[in-house]
Amino acid sequence: MPTEWKLFADLAERAGDKHVTVDAAAGDTVGDALEALLEATPELEDRVLEDGELRSQINVLRNGTNVLVEEEGMETVLDADDELALFPPVSGG
């Protein structure tokens, strides 16, 4: 069961697409899905990771909820049909 990442702002520009589907399913973790994303779009790796860890300014949302703040971070376990989003600091207004 594939999972879709939504990418925003410069992350979408680097990846060349706003949507990337990866091979991660219910039971896998957000970290597994991120690893699959970076395999599919290696041009994102330097922008997203620093020394193998997620850069502090990068946000990861699962179904609209920030997994780093309100869930178990990269260990958060995926449910079926989750929507994942990756974006830089927000800059509205």
Binding site: F8, A9, D10, N59, A85, P88, V90, S91, G92, G93
Partner: peptide, 18 residues
Amino acid sequence: VPLFKKEVTVEDEFWVHD
């Protein structure tokens, strides 16, 4: 709120968070 701003000036274009 997840909104992202790109600024386009007469000289350049860039994402504001950069």
